[in-house]
Each structure stands twice: as C-alpha cells, then as structure tokens.
Design a protein around this nucleic acid. Structure first.
Lengths: 168, 168
DNA sequence: GTTATTCGGACATTTAATATCCGAATTAGG
DNA sequence: CCTAATTCGGATATTAAATGTCCGAATAAC
C-alpha cells in the first residue's frame, strides 16, 4: 500500500504552476531541476497530468506546462488519481466463490462485506484529499514561508518562465 | 496505491477463525484449500498475523492457527497493518530541500503541507478500518447468508477442525 | 526415542514501479 | 514558405516489490 513517488513530484510541480502569470508556462526540465529530480521521469508524471486534463501542454520552442483550470478546481485527489489510476486500492477477487463451500454466482448479489468495509475506508481517504485544492496548498505555502524564500522563488521563476501562446 | 492480495486472504482467513470453538485451530493448508488459494502463500500471510500477535500458532501434529484475542479486539486495520506494514503510504522525500531554491534543514521544522494533507487522509482511512472488527464481519456474515450455506460451512469445519492444546 | 506432522524462514519467479531514450510535433526566425 | 531549434509524447530498459514455492526446524503424538 505505497503511493508512488510520482504523486509527490506531480503535486509539487502543479503547486509551482499556481504561481505562474497568466499565459505563461514552465518546461518539464525546469520543473525537474527546481525539485532536484530526474528530468525524464518528471516529464512522465506531467504527461499523466496532461492526459487527465489537469495541465495544458504546448510543444515546440518556448513550449511548456501550465494549469488547465483554476487552482481552486484541482484537488489533491485529482492529481493522485491521474498518476495512480482511479481503481480501488483493495481489489476483491471474490474468493468467497472458491473452494469446497464456494458461493454460486447467483448468491453474490450483495457485495462481500469485507470489500465493502475497505471501499468505505477508501471513500474517506478520497474525500479527505478532495477537500484540499492547489489553491489551499499555495496559500498556506505563502503564509508559512520566509519572505526571503518567496523572493528567491520569484527570481527563479522570472529567469525560467517562458512566454506561451494562449491557444494551444 | 494497491493493497496486496495477501490482505484480502488474511482477512478472510481470520474471519473464518471467528467461528472456531474454544481451544481448537485450523491448519494453514485447510484455510488455503477452503479459499481456493495456494497453500504456501496463504501460510506466509498467517505467519505475518502470528508475528503481529493477531493469531496464535501451534506447531507439530494437530497444530494450526487460532485467534490470539477476542474478535471484538481485532480490527481490519490491525490485519492490514500486519500484512502491509505500519508505515505511511505517502512517503515525503523532502524534495523542498532540493534544487536551486531548496530550503535549509533549519527552516523545515514545520512539516510539508502536502505531506500533512496526505497524512490526514491516511488517518481517515485508518480510522474507518479501525471501526470494523472481526466480530462485526462475522455477525454480518451470519445474518446475510443462506442457512444452507452456513450449514455447509459448519460441516466443513467439523471435518477439518483440529484439537489444539491450550498452552502453546 | 521415534516418527509423522506442521509452522517458519530462505529461495525463485513474476509483476509493477522507476528511470531513460529517441522520434513526432510545434514554433521562432530567416 | 522553409529551415532549424526546441519541446512534448510514447516506446523502451532497469530496478524494486509483490507473488509464489520450497525445504529445514520445531513440536506433539505414539
């Protein structure tokens, strides 16, 4: 029951994009370098975010990534699901149908209670992550950081940010 | 973010042990056969439950497994943690300390907000599973099953159940 | 004490996560 | 309009983890 490293990277990268000025983007290499992680693997996570409609990508010279919708509409669950998939963590293989006392398919209209309990726990997990948006993360970050640190980030952004055409 | 198959098997096996008469046990091979899964791999999950103090094992002739404490004191989280480990699913690698704007170790006394959000979600998941005990599972199972099916199970138990010495 | 039986940990195999590379697509500039 | 530089996208290796298997250690019955 481990969440892949890609989720952590994707959330940090997306959080960085919150600070981008309108109509501008960051290339995958810049996001990877900023967080000190391998470029190609970070790019893979960004692809997944792009497929999920969380970020927009622009190819070619001066290309890059930016958020595809307002930060208030992107939850941590959206990002987690984009990387890890939407499927349940607990996969019921219906072993109650196996063995000498196995139930017939007909008698299995009601779901296995064990699977139901895990499904309920996962719903609680999802709901908790759905309640936190990138806007929340960004706001908290600004509040809790030293002014000098925020200044450093702004300078880095100015040096790395790329103009990006408005219509991809 | 997948929960291993072993958790499903371990929960089903432990649920079966709820129905055992006092001072009796089931051997790993019987539990595996009953659920239609490989014996050796089922045995591996039972070992993990034994190490965690959830079940008691007795070796040698007429050996087997039984619950180590009342079914009301064993939650689905206890079993999940015994198989999957107690560590968090989201592992914060502190990438905020990396890269050109990396934070110094000193400025990281407060935890990363992203990690905190996932930690909170996992707590909700845990609490949900902690609220369900083997006693609950057993009771619901008896209520929802056809009388004939329960009868089949009782007959199987009588044929497979082994006398087990009281002091392991 | 001997033997049959069962659990326990060490050992392969398969699957998924991690990391990397090269081609496809797009834009900037001439 | 064409060329060249640049960037994303999917296909491809590598490593770690989950899955599955085996044989020795320990125990109880006889």
């Amino acid at each position: 029951m481990q969440i892949s490293k890609g989720v952590e990277w994707a959330v940090h990268a997306a959080s960085m994009m919150v600070a981008l000025p309108e109509g501008r983007g960051l290339k995958a290499a810049a996001l990877a370098h900023y967080h000190g992680v391998p470029t190609a693997y970070m790019a893979k996570q960004l692809q997944a975010l792009s497929k999920a409609g969380i970020v927009q990508s622009s190819r070619g010279a001066h290309g890059g990534y930016r958020l595809a919708k307002p930060a208030t509409d992107i939850s941590l669950w959206d990002i987690t699901a984009a990387i890890e998939g939407h499927g349940p963590a607990f996969r019921c293989t219906e072993i109650r149908q196996n063995g000498p006392c196995g139930l017939k398919r007909k008698d299995c209209r009601s779901p296995c209670q064990i699977a139901a309990a895990f499904s309920s726990a996962e719903r609680a997990f999802r709901d908790s992550l759905k309640a936190v948006t990138l806007a929340d993360i960004g706001l908290q970050f600004v509040r809790d950081s030293e002014p000098e640190h925020l200044s450093d980030i702004m300078h880095w952004l100015e040096s790395e940010v790329m103009p990006l055409s408005d219509t991809p």
